[in-house]
C-alpha cells in the first residue's frame, strides 16, 4: 500500500568527519615539536674578571672570537673538548677551570665549554668575558 521510504546509506555522512580529522591533523602537525629540550644548571659569574684565581691550578678554556676553542692556548676541536680538558687536568682534583669568552664567541661554544668543565670533575668552574684574550 504505502511505499517504504528509501533507506539512506550510512556512509554518506563520512565527509564532515574527514574534514574534522584533517583539521585535527593539521593542528597537531603545526603545534607539535619533536625537540628534546634539556636543561643545564650554571652558576652565575661574578661581574668582575679580576676575582678569577690565577695560579698553577687553573686550566683555562679560551673561546676565541673567530669561533675556535683552545685549552691553555692549545687549539682543540669542540667535539674533543671534553677529552682535551681531562688530559689537561690529569690526576689533580683541586683544579679550577676558567672559561674565558672573547668578544665574538658564540653561545654554542660557551655551552660546550661549561659541559666539558663539569664533566672533567674540576672543583671550581668560573666564567668570564674578556675583550681580547692575552695570548
Amino acid at each position: 500500500m504505502f511505499e517504504e521510504p528509501i533507506r539512506k546509506r550510512g556512509m554518506a555522512s563520512l565527509t564532515p568527519l574527514i574534514d574534522v580529522v584533517f583539521l585535527l591533523l593539521i593542528f597537531f602537525m603545526l603545534t607539535t615539536s619533536f625537540l628534546q629540550e634539556q636543561s643545564l644548571s650554571v652558576v652565575t659569574p661574578a661581574p668582575s674578571a679580576d676575582e678569577l684565581p690565577k695560579d698553577a691550578r687553573v686550566v683555562e678554556i679560551w673561546l676565541n672570537g673567530d669561533g675556535s676553542i683552545a685549552i691553555d692556548g692549545e687549539p682543540v676541536e669542540r667535539a674533543a673538548l671534553s677529552e682535551g680538558l681531562k688530559a689537561a687536568i690529569g690526576e689533580r682534583k683541586d683544579i679550577t677551570v676558567t672559561i674565558l669568552a672573547e668578544k665574538g664567541s658564540r653561545t654554542q661554544a660557551l655551552v660546550s665549554a661549561v659541559e666539558a668543565a663539569r664533566e672533567s670533575g674540576a672543583k671550581n668552574v668560573g666564567t668570564a668575558r674578556v675583550e681580547k684574550i692575552a695570548k
Binding site: S39, T44, P47, R106, T107, A128
Partner: peptide, 27 residues
Amino acid sequence: ADAPAEAVLQLMEGLREAGVEQVTILT
C-alpha cells in the same frame, strides 16, 4: 646557539647582582 656568549655572560652577571646564584640554560 649563535647568540654572542658575551651577551649571555652579561645577562648572567646581571642575574648574579639580582641575587640569582644559579641559572638554567636550555639546550
